[in-house]
Design a protein around this nucleic acid. Structure first.
Lengths: 143, 143
DNA sequence: TATTAATTGAAAATTATTTTCATTTAACAT
DNA sequence: ATGTTAAATGAAAATAATTTTCAATTAATA
């Protein structure tokens, strides 16, 4: 029973290898954002022979196909998260536990239009992330 | 006649070395966002003996003191820009020439409050950047 | 079951960043 | 002006992150 992400990948004509399945499983099973190295570490048991290169390549592939989200705020610069919301959304990230909450309603469209008009830019994308500390981490004095 | 950034740095009790001045000059003279390596390359003439380490260290120092802005969208993950707007502002970045336009009025405060209430997070910061192509780059078919 | 293009892993290469440490120097006080 | 000193520098090495190369393997299809 392959995950939605896995199926989407096969629909794009990509091979569904055990390595890819394992990487997708790790991402699917996590509410945190994970770097390539994080994912690699979590694969030690499930898929011992896997190479870090494959993790990088798979992340790139999934990213290209819009099957996961890239997170920029945080310790390491780039980390990844399964895509949980279909539409346009953004992230609120806990710096304590790494948990990510999706949110919509950024209402940046009107801002984007305004900026476009004022500057003559053709705006292609935007990056919006909030970072803070979630209530469990606040309670646990992981502050 | 030292720049505002340089003076601010000295007011913080930091030494105003020729290396730091040169780095600040490069940043001050650029409307693009620059990586440590970019800055290092531009110092070849002005300050030939300088080490890349010093560039890294100076960027960190300036960043710590809020004297420049960090940019995340782009080829390399982290690059820097002189701080041109005093208050809270964000960036619109041209992926063609790297030129950065500051803008205000993101109106994320109300969104931030809403998110805080809905999630129980203590929100500490946010990252908002727009990326696109500026009119000159559009004209020049650098598209 | 055979075929084949896609995928993998190992190793090396590249790039980015940080640490260490001996030497130099800006800022300040004579 | 000159001496003092903590801060800053540069070289080199260490570490970390990412990409490339290439021969071997394998998932998907016929």
């Amino acid at each position: 029973m392959d995950s939605e992400i896995a199926l989407a990948l096969r629909n794009k004509g990509c091979k569904l290898t055990p390595q890819r399945k394992a990487i997708i499983e790790v991402l699917s099973g996590s509410e945190e954002h994970l770097t390539a190295a994080d994912i690699f570490a979590r694969l030690r048991d499930k898929q011992p022979g896997i190479g870090l290169v494959t993790v990088y390549r798979t992340l790139e592939l999934l990213q290209e196909n819009g099957l996961l989200c890239e997170v920029h705020i945080g310790n390491s610069c780039r980390s990844y998260l399964k895509r949980r919301s279909d539409g346009h959304h953004h992230h609120l990230i806990c710096r304590g536990c790494g948990r990510v909450v999706d949110f919509t309603g950024c209402e940046l469209d009107s801002l984007q239009k305004r900026l476009s008009q004022e500057t003559g830019f053709k705006i292609e994308k935007h990056l919006l992330e909030f970072m803070g500390c979630c209530s469990s981490c606040l309670d646990g004095r992981e502050d």
